[in-house]
């Protein structure tokens, strides 16, 4: 374990995570105006429809898969009686399915961004970077999952790489501030690459349009359709209280609220 390992599996991940958290706080506080999904549907809709739907639905399930693999400890599965083999069977097939869907989507979105000139002209560097990085991260993730199988078959290794015994505990160890570097050292290169690229993406995240992930408008389900805003909310609220109390107009003098 040398300084280089220290950097890759402790310093860099922490830098990325701190940038992720503080970056979001900073951006939310100072750049509400810039906080948008940055849609280009207005410019082009046919390719976008396929790209966006494939990518988003794919990545949604890929995300759930990552929660299942990284955040839920292997002991939980074993206690629940899920055998390692059946876990990996599901992870491989579902993971590959949704991974390929997400990959096809992001590939289409990248192609669209680069080759349709009215979109390319109005794309900033950060968007190119994050869109490209998403492509690379998803590709490397798929390559690690599928590639390892092929590699293992050739060299007579155990068919399933048990990332829940090294990558997952290392990832969790970051969050209780006792990073277990040694767990990452023996991980195959493809997985290492996938992890590092993902952390790079996390570092760029708050400064890109990816922030829209945190704006899923769930509040829409609860609010009433028509929204009023008052330039004098205090008066409006007290008027509303009066109304609730009296249910009918009170005298003119009482009613006036300035």
């Amino acid at each position: 374990m040398n300084l280089w390992h220290q950097f890759l599996w402790v310093i860099f991940p922490y830098l990325a995570l701190v940038t992720f958290v503080l970056g979001h706080i900073y951006r939310y506080a100072y750049d509400q105006f810039g906080w948008t999904a940055g849609s280009s549907q207005l410019m082009e809709r046919r390719l976008l429809m396929w790209g966006v739907l494939l990518f988003h639905w794919g990545i949604l399930f890929v995300f759930i898969g990552h929660v299942m693999g990284l955040l839920v400890p292997i002991e939980v599965y074993r206690a629940m009686g899920v055998s390692d083999h059946s876990y990996h069977l599901l992870a491989l097939w579902a993971g590959t399915l949704f991974g390929v869907i997400a990959l096809a989507g992001i590939l289409l979105l990248n192609i669209r961004r680069w080759f349709i000139s009215r979109i390319r002209t109005n794309t900033d560097t950060m968007r190119f970077l994050t869109d490209g990085l998403l492509l690379v991260v998803i590709f490397s993730g798929l390559a690690a999952t599928v590639g390892y199988r092929i590699y293992a078959a050739q060299y007579d290794l155990p068919a399933e790489f048990e990332y829940r015994e090294n990558i997952a505990p290392w990832f969790r160890s970051l969050f209780y501030f006792a990073p277990q570097i040694e767990l990452m050292l023996e991980v195959p290169l493809m997985f290492q690459l996938h992890v590092l690229l993902a952390f790079l993406l996390f570092a760029l995240w708050p400064f890109s349009s990816l922030v829209h992930v945190f704006s899923v408008p769930l509040g829409y389900l609860r609010r009433s359709y028509i929204q009023y805003r008052s330039s004098n909310p205090k008066a409006a609220i007290s008027r509303e209280k009066d109304r609730r109390k009296s249910r009918k107009p009170v005298g003119v003098d009482q009613g006036r609220k300035e």
Partner: peptide, 23 residues
Amino acid sequence: SGAMYKREEDGIVLVDQEQCRGW
């Protein structure tokens, strides 16, 4: 996003440019 609203006083419909998320 709840970024659009009617002004209580004069009924003008506006978009809150800071709250709009571009959906």
